[in-house]
């Protein structure tokens, strides 16, 4: 079974660049954009999956980090464009690596207090308190006028990466895809590491973990913060893809969508988020073109996944998971 999952995973990873390359050769740039979108949403979900899949922490507020990352990209680029310092004399920038770093740091800084408070709760209470924090940031973003409020913030052009023309779809896809691979690699290493084992133990038997002298709270907090950082990075990429960021990236629908991606693909599976994102985006795209009632059919598809594909798409393709 494990071998079959590996085959499925390899095929999944190859699928995106294959689509993007084919699109490049036949001159259908839009499909590169679609593949990029899948990769970014997958990265956001990989981030969430560290908390949700590995740690069993169902965060219903990860849109907060996704949106914050997006706003970092938007705000820094706007300040660079207007040649105004952001704060404390620091200039804005249109340099992607700097923006990524800033997004990761900011999301980590914000996730720390949110995690400190939220992780005192568990179960449904955790789901709802993370939602509460996300809603606070959402309403703040809607009513704060400096960066467009509900209208959002447009980037006049995509931010740059040294040596690449990111304005073209394919180079940008490559950038995003490499980051997705890095995210997947990190997830894989975490899962296999002692930290991953401790996180697993914190989920399944916190009392025993505590007896070994490791604090389940601290382990969960680290996982939550790490998870927020990766989702934040994906948010920055998403803003650059759309050249636009708005409070809807912070809304509870977005949080819900990220969770749906993971369950759709198969939770706690390494490639679950990628499979889920691919399926979701393709359904949205294909059904949306066919009928204005597409949300009805999307609902039916999701129901079918719950009932007939336990373990998500990966579970369906690769059989039962190796563990858990």
């Amino acid at each position: 079974m494990a071998a079959r999952e590996t085959t499925v995973n390899v095929l999944l990873v190859l699928l995106l660049p294959a689509v993007a390359l084919t699109a490049l050769f036949i001159g259908e740039a839009f499909y590169i954009t679609l593949a990029t979108r899948i990769a970014i949403l997958a990265l956001a979900a990989v981030g969430l999956n560290i908390a949700l899949g590995l740690g069993g922490l169902v965060s219903f507020g990860h849109a907060a980090f996704f949106g914050l990352g997006g706003y970092v990209a938007g705000v820094l680029a706007t300040h660079a464009f207007n040649m105004e310092p952001v704060a404390l004399g620091l200039p804005g920038t249109t340099d992607m690596p700097v923006i990524w770093l800033a997004a990761i740091l900011l999301c980590g800084l914000v996730a720390l207090p949110i995690g400190l408070v939220s992780l005192r709760t568990s179960g449904v209470y955790f789901i709802m308190i993370t939602l509460a924090f996300a809603q606070m940031i959402y309403y703040f973003a809607i009513s704060w006028p400096a960066y467009g409020g509900e209208d959002g913030l447009s980037l006049s052009m995509r931010n740059g990466f040294p040596g690449l023309n990111t304005a073209r779809p394919f180079p940008y896809f490559i950038v995003v895809f490499v980051l997705l691979l890095a995210g997947l690699f990190l997830f894989h290493r975490l899962q296999a590491s002692r930290f991953g084992a401790a996180l697993e133990a914190a989920r399944q038997n916190p009392a025993r973990l505590a007896a070994t002298g490791i604090s389940p709270f601290a382990i969960r907090l680290v996982a939550f913060v790490l998870s927020a950082m990766i989702t934040g990075l994906a948010g920055a990429l998403f803003a650059d893809l759309n050249r636009f960021v708005s409070p809807s990236m912070l809304s509870w629908h977005m949080s819900g969508e990220l969770i749906v991606l993971i369950i759709l693909g198969g939770k706690s599976r390494l490639f679950g988020p990628l499979a889920g994102a691919a399926l979701y985006v393709l359904f949205e795209y294909a059904l949306g073109g066919l009928t204005e009632r597409w949300q009805l059919f999307l609902g039916l598809v999701l129901l079918a996944v719950v009932f007939f594909a336990r373990g998500g798409l990966i579970g369906l393709l690769a059989g039962r998971p190796r563990h858990g």
Binding site: E28, T33, L34, N242, S248, W294
Partner: peptide, 20 residues
């Protein structure tokens, strides 16, 4: 095409209409 009143979806549809 239907944007479902979501800005991100509208952006995606616009890209498709322009590029594809």
């Amino acid at each position: 095409e239907d944007d479902a009143q979501k800005p991100e979806l509208a952006v995606q549809i616009a890209e498709k209409m322009i590029q594809s």
